[in-house]
Design a protein around this nucleic acid. Sequence first.
RNA 1: UCCAGCGUAGCUCAGUGGUAGAGCGGUCGGCUGUUAACCGAUUGGUCGUAGGUUCGAAUCCUACCGCUGGAGCCA
Length: 467
Amino acid sequence: MSEVEEPRTMTMPATIKNVLQRTRPVADLQVQGWVRTRRDSKDFSFIELNDGSSLKNLQVIAKSTLPEYSEVLRLMTGASIRVHGDLVASQGKGQAWELVADRIEVIGQSDDSYPLQKKGHTPEFLREIAHLRPRSNLFGAVFRVRSKLAFAIHRFFQERGFVYVHTPVITGSDCEGAGELFRVSTTTSAKNPQNDDAPAEFFGRPTFLSVSGQLEAEAFACAFSKVYTFGPTFRAENSNTSRHASEFWMIEPEMAFCDLACNMDLAEELVKYLVRRTREECAEDLELFARFVDKELLTRLDFVLARPFHRITYSEAIELLSASAENFSFPVKYGLNLQSEHERWLTEKHFKSPVTIFNYPREIKPFYMRANDDGKTVAAMDLLVPGIGEIVGGSQREERLEVLRQNMRQHQMNEAEYKWYLDLRRYGTVPHSGFGLGFERMLMFVTGVPNIRDVIPFARTPGNAEF
RNA sequence: UCCAGCGUAGCUCAGUGGUAGAGCGGUCGGCUGUUAACCGAUUGGUCGUAGGUUCGAAUCCUACCGCUGGAGCCA
């Protein structure tokens, strides 16, 4: 097995992850990081050093003969140091390698008010110190996985010939009219609407933070055939749950010449791909989650990889729920939305796996979804996963100009504002489909972390925009 | 927004009408190739905020604030 070498420069010493992967002793290594803990022995100290490159710490041996040993004895948890020394086989149990220091440089001292201890902290407490929590084991793991997952998403689409499109964050349309929007205005017009220097509307019209890039993605899909967006999304809904945030990231593929079945295929393939990649590339971090967050995590992820997803129509879902012996607190009836308890029963009790439900009643879905020939349903689909609920929502889009215009009239929408959207149906219209995947919900699914606030670096939720 | 629960030391919690507590952390000392080390000592509080009841309130009541869980909506 060959040794893993990283490119090294003066300013970028080896990462601790790399150092721990060495297969033989190395002289003259330099590492830098933050002190997790220090234990003093008779003639030397142990320092656990972490630089975020991996869950594991590097054990540093600081002998009392070091000129700077008095400084070492004052090192507090949280301090930053640079260490030069030799990597040798560890005499103790618990680690293969340790770094015997010949020079320790204290870069930034810490003090006893540093809130992170080496012992357990609740996620709720760590949330209050969002600027320091990435230095904890749990959140270090969460945000390493977040990075890997984001990259895996790009990889999935790029490997399949999708074009990455940046849809606008500031939008002029309130889209499907679903959900509350944040208004965008200048500070001057907000403070003083009468200020002559500032136009009442900077953009000459009301503007909002985007709740979805879908409509714009459709335009690009009708040029590039297969596109995807991946960026921040904003919802001003006053919802306070473990699954909602005011600012979150969403992935929205959009495909021309693709019907609902093709759409569902892609959604299921994507979810499986992301699970597989995380399983392969984040094994160490996932084991931490399996130990401390969700004991069933690895079993469930492997199950998702091994088994086909179930796929049923909305009508079939209603029949299954009606026939079940379960005592639901909300009614099960054709024409009503499925409640959380219904989704949970389907994924967690009945199928015990992800389920895609499709062909929903027209009345409970937005204007752009394609009408099916039965006259009652639209080509919509939701992918539900155990523990989270809806993770993907999508549809085949209505590509027939007259049907779309009729839908807009029924939804009392101003056709003039959507002229550009209707143009897509006037000039070379094609059947096309797409969906939205909630990035944080996917991250919750692969990590087992039950609160969305704990998979976002600095979460924005109603009443909370600190940091 | 609705329902429920919780706010006591830096952290996790006990205390449910009568002197404010424990473990962990921090500090000091001891011991030790240690691993969430160990042993001894010590430090540490406007009991979320404001009112009220009472001889007396962390404890009972009211309002507010914050947090958590669930629901709705959604991703």
